[in-house]
Design a protein around this nucleic acid. Structure first.
Lengths: 245, 245
DNA sequence: TAAAACATTTTTATCGATATTTTTTTAGTT
DNA sequence: AACTAAAAAAATATCGATAAAAATGTTTTA
């Protein structure tokens, strides 16, 4: 999400509890373990994560700025809501930034970049199913593949924004998967993009990428629309709600 | 910077100390009162602002996610560095987003939008000099004018990102002004944009806007380059450094 | 039965205190 | 004078405690 989000000690400062909390919360939200509108009560998080209030609040503040969490003064934090309109909005922006970054990456990618793309593609293609117990792994490699494609783009800020949008988009995908998974030929789309990139067919690559993103979004929107019709419970966190009768 | 950044009580929660700290810090950074790389020591800020450590750290965390501040684990916060390369990067992105938002705004702006634009333009044109003691006021109206132009864009996320980039850009302008001001015909450029917008000459408006932004950035880059050649002192905050001899 | 008023419980935002880490200063060596 | 090493000072990250606010539950009133 952010430029630097260390969880382990490294040259640029050691991992603080805030960093750890940020990573865990971020991951829980992006993977759909924490669904939209879920209340993020400091009290509970403290127990669940074993981290004090201050680092938690700092992490949540960062996430709020990232747009993954909402804050309301005196009323605490919640996972950001998810709506079809917002998904469309995000999708449109993601396409704009992704294609821009891809275009530049294809212009300036050298041999090392190519090698990295080939490697990322290879790893991704080794896990066939989009689902199953190896899903997190697939998700990870999918992420790395898409990142590898744009890695040669020379604009750090563009890459940063693109990454943020990727995350937002991923959250929506995760939410949809949480309800039901749609199957389609993702691998095929990936392969087409892969080929276009290596052959430097810039416009093709951008267009294929656009369609890939849009297609995903449409499927997610469908699932989302079907479920948002239902009355949304004011979700708590883990705490089992009392059921009448 | 953010969707909602209240400083005064409103429907969506009352203003917390965190909000106040955020506003003040944000303003100090964007207006150039806090220069790049300035150390933001909690201890000192506490005295200066009369706000405790926790709200300060939360505000700084948000600013860090916004990219206006850097954090290094165990080594605290600093105002984000400013480099010519980063300015160029930001400029490029800002142009991308600004023109995109403007294009859409021009497509869907109705009569109310027009009226708001006319009003914003009028207010801006009433303060002639770009400098002087009324500079903050001019800056404010400039902001409002540019915001009015894109206000009819229907993508909240795009407007949000655009606003973030505007702020980043403003910071660079402020830094440059801090050293020396460049004079040119800003009003003329503004007027040209204004006319193109009202007459819905979309491509013209975008191009004029692009040039406007790029032109500003080039001037700022010049000032910045001239000054970054000098050895950068490890700036402290207010605390007078001991001068040898 | 519904609404209003009040009392309780829970949670938030914030402060002050503190162990740990970093930075600065001082002293000691080659 | 230029490095190191040790000591002192300052700053950071974090915890626990608490006033204020919000949410929840209960009783009273119409």
């Amino acid at each position: 999400m952010n430029a630097a989000t260390p969880t382990e000690p490294n040259d640029a400062g050691s991992a603080t509890l805030t960093d750890i909390a940020y990573s865990r919360l971020s991951d829980d939200i992006l993977s759909g373990r924490l669904l939209p509108d879920t209340k993020l009560a400091i009290e509970h998080l403290r127990r669940d994560y074993g981290i004090g209030a201050s680092p938690l609040r700092e992490a949540l503040s960062r996430l709020a700025a990232d747009g993954l969490v909402t804050v309301i003064g005196q009323r605490g934090f919640r996972v950001a809501p998810a709506t079809v309109a917002d998904l469309r909005d995000i999708t449109r922006l993601r396409i704009l930034l992704e294609t821009e970054a891809l275009r530049e990456s294809l212009c300036s990618g050298d041999e090392d970049w190519e090698a990295a793309v080939v490697a990322a593609w290879y790893r991704l293609s080794k896990i066939e199913p989009e689902r199953g117990q190896r899903f997190p792994e697939w998700e990870q490699r999918n992420h790395e593949f898409h990142e590898a494609l744009v890695a040669a783009c020379r604009s750090p800020r563009l890459l940063q924004l693109r990454a943020a949008l990727y995350d937002q988009h991923r959250r929506y995908r995760s939410i949809a998967v949480h309800y039901r998974s749609a199957d389609r030929d993702v691998s095929g789309e990936h392969e087409a993009i892969y080929r276009a990139c290596l052959e430097r067919r810039i416009d093709d690559a951008c267009e294929l990428s656009r369609v890939h993103i849009q297609h995903t979004a449409d499927l997610v929107a469908e699932v989302l629309a079907a479920n948002s019709a239902l009355p949304q419970p004011a979700r708590g966190r883990g705490r089992p709600r009392k059921v009448a009768g």
